[in-house]
Design a protein around this nucleic acid. Structure first.
Length: 158
DNA sequence: GCCAACGTTGGC
DNA sequence: GCCAACGTTGGC
C-alpha cells in the first residue's frame, strides 16, 4: 500500500446501509461496522486519514456500482459490534482490552447517478482499478488519484 | 441458487 | 509451516 493513498472505494450492501441510509443518518455519518477482513481492517486502522475521499459502492444487489461520494470522517476506533453477542458481527475472540476490529466513521457527501460495475469495466481509464481486478473480494480498496479524477469527471459529464 | 475465487481454520 | 477442508464474498 502506498502511504500517499487518499482515495478509497468502500463496499456496502444497500440492504444494510445504502447511500440514502447514510445521507439520512445524523451528520450523514455512519460507523463502517462489520468489516472482518484483516487487509480491509488495516486500511481503516493504519492507512486512512480523515478527509480521504470515498467512493460509496453498492454490492450484493441488483445493480452493483458506485452510488455516491463520501469522506473518511473519524480516526480509527473499535467496532462495537464485535463485542455484541447478538450481532452477526460478534467475534468471541476479541476483547475490549485487545479489540481485533477497528473502523472509521464515513460521512456521505452526496448521492450520484449509479456508475454500474458493467460500466466501470468498460471505461479504459479504470482498467487497473483494484475493484475490477480478477477475483477481487476486498470490501475496501485503494483508488488512485487518476481513477478518482476519472470518476469525478464522469459524474460531472452530461 | 450457482459457483469461482479467495480467506481462514486447524490438524499434523 | 503446510495444506486440505471449510466458509464467505459477490456477480451473474
Amino acid at each position: 500500500m502506498t502511504p500517499s493513498t487518499r482515495y478509497w472505494l468502500m463496499k456496502s450492501e444497500p440492504d444494510e446501509c445504502s447511500i440514502d441510509d447514510a445521507l439520512a443518518a445524523p451528520q450523514a455519518t455512519v460507523a463502517w461496522i462489520g468489516v472482518r477482513n484483516y487487509q480491509a481492517r488495516n486500511f481503516m486502522r493504519d492507512a486512512m486519514r480523515v478527509g480521504d475521499g470515498v467512493l460509496f459502492y453498492h454490492s450484493s444487489c441488483a445493480e452493483p456500482g458506485i452510488a455516491g461520494l463520501a469522506r473518511v470522517a473519524s480516526e480509527p476506533y473499535p467496532d462495537p459490534s464485535q463485542f455484541d453477542p447478538a450481532s452477526p458481527y460478534f467475534d468471541p475472540k476479541s476483547t475490549p482490552d485487545a479489540p481485533r476490529w477497528l473502523l472509521r466513521d464515513v460521512q456521505a457527501l452526496r448521492k450520484t447517478r449509479l456508475l454500474s460495475l458493467a460500466a466501470l469495466r468498460q471505461h479504459p481509464a479504470l482498467a487497473d482499478m483494484k475493484l475490477l481486478q480478477r477475483g477481487n473480494r476486498l470490501s475496501i480498496t485503494e483508488v488512485s488519484e487518476a481513477e478518482w479524477a476519472t470518476v469525478c469527471q464522469w459524474l460531472d459529464a452530461p
